[in-house]
Design a protein around this nucleic acid. Structure first.
Lengths: 249, 249
DNA sequence: TGGCGGCGGGCCGTATACAATCGATGACGA
DNA sequence: TCGTCATCGATTGTATACGGCCCGCCGCCA
């Protein structure tokens, strides 16, 4: 509830935005929707919107200065990526992944990302490697500075960029989506304090790829992902009166 | 244009459907949208709607007896699956995959579907194997009966069911989406007459999986997909006045 | 005092209306 | 006869209005 307010202030005052449509305005509408989508998506991935948080379309519409129509479109898009859950008459809320989903997502990542390593190794250019290392550096720096949101974002970006370097668009999109969901999973099951990826891992992985050691890169990625999955705490925080049936069954 | 008409007749007459909303009607609205989505999706996958065909929302809305609002939602969903292309002010049309997209899609399928074979082999139950064989049988039968649309649908279903049997939902969804796109690719680049999958292949694959021969199943799937990809004719059908420049360049 | 049923508000789902934009067609001029 | 421009029609994009469902509150009754 309080969260939608800060989102509004970051873009424009509601009243101004509402009139702004008629006159000349930044963003021709189509791009504006894309921007809003990205903002909401980032807020979810960075854990600024926590799983279970409700996303009322009226509030979002007023916050961004657009009509509910546009917001609905964006919410449906996010729902298709499993980032938000759309309950028939109850509206949208940030998805709360189940343990089964978490396991499936990480299994899928292991299958795809590992097999992608040979592709990446063969296509990796020095400039790409440099960019990847920069991401790893930024991530470590953000982590040290206590900017956890930024660190999460950068960690996901590292994996996404890696997938993009394979040159296969469908697979890159798929990995990107899995990474987003992983962020959500870490928000629910992650041990607070240390986010999933050990940042030194990323550095080391780039080294292996640059050296063309495909097999070792595969094994490394496998261990890397398994480590993240293993760091999840399976014990679920009790929301509210959840297990009365289970206890007294 | 003529195609939307038959879609309408299969469900209800437009006038009746329009009034029907107020009174009691089959499908409570939410399910109706899902049904419409499936119908359009099937029409595209079965090549009843050919790549490049325009999908005007007014026409679809009238054909199915709903408002444009619902149609727009469905079209956006299809666009996210790359089955239709949404051009900013020009509306929707059935996607026409490029050759690069085709190559990427089949590369992704090889990577994922092959690696999925061990999972499937280990989890395959006799009932599942039987169902898969039935699909293969139906496919061959449809092919002999000249029902090409049905055969295409069944072939895609075989691959989808196979992926579902891995027990990993995200990967199954991904494969399903890739199969849909493959149908589209075959519609554009497929040699007319024989659709992609040699139907006996599917039978043989089930046999390998039942026997638990994982490695051979992987190799078989690899060959199977490579064969489909190789059967594509790269020469592009001339749409309209395409090569005047190329000829007289 | 605790459970239950009616009732109101909030919110989503759908349809419709309006506005803006793009393509095409026809006329005019060179 | 060809090129250019203006106007018109068609189609999408956006906003708004209305209807319906669900949830929570309040009063009533046991």
């Amino acid at each position: 509830m309080a969260k939608s307010a800060n989102a509004a202030s970051s873009t424009s005052k509601p009243a101004e935005a509402k009139r702004g449509r008629g006159a000349g305005k930044a963003g021709d509408g189509a791009e504006r929707h894309e921007a809003i989508y990205q903002q909401i998506r980032e807020a979810i991935v960075e854990h600024r919107l926590k799983p279970g948080a409700r996303l009322r379309e009226d509030a979002l519409a007023e916050a961004f200065g657009v009509s509910r129509t546009g917001i609905r479109k964006i919410l449906q898009r996010l729902a298709l990526e499993h980032l938000v859950t759309l309950t028939p008459r109850r509206g949208a809320s940030v998805s709360r992944p189940t343990i089964e989903e978490a396991r499936d997502v990480f299994a899928a990542r292991q299958l795809v990302e590992c097999q992608l390593m040979p592709w990446v190794a063969r296509r990796l250019k020095p400039a790409d490697a440099k960019a990847l290392r920069q991401l790893a550096v930024d991530e470590r720096q953000a982590l040290r500075a206590g900017q956890q949101s930024r660190a999460i974002q950068l960690s996901a970006q590292f994996h996404q960029r890696l997938a993009e370097l394979s040159g296969n668009t469908p697979l890159a999109e798929f990995v990107a989506r899995l990474c987003s969901r992983s962020s959500l999973i870490l928000a629910v099951y992650g041990a607070s304090g240390h986010l999933g990826c050990e940042s030194h891992d990323h550095d080391e992985l780039v080294t292996l790829l640059e050296a063309g050691k495909e097999e070792r890169a595969i094994a490394f990625m496998q261990r890397h992902l398994k480590a993240i999955e293993a760091s999840l705490s399976i014990e679920e925080s009790v929301d509210e009166a959840p297990d009365l049936n289970a206890i007294f069954g």
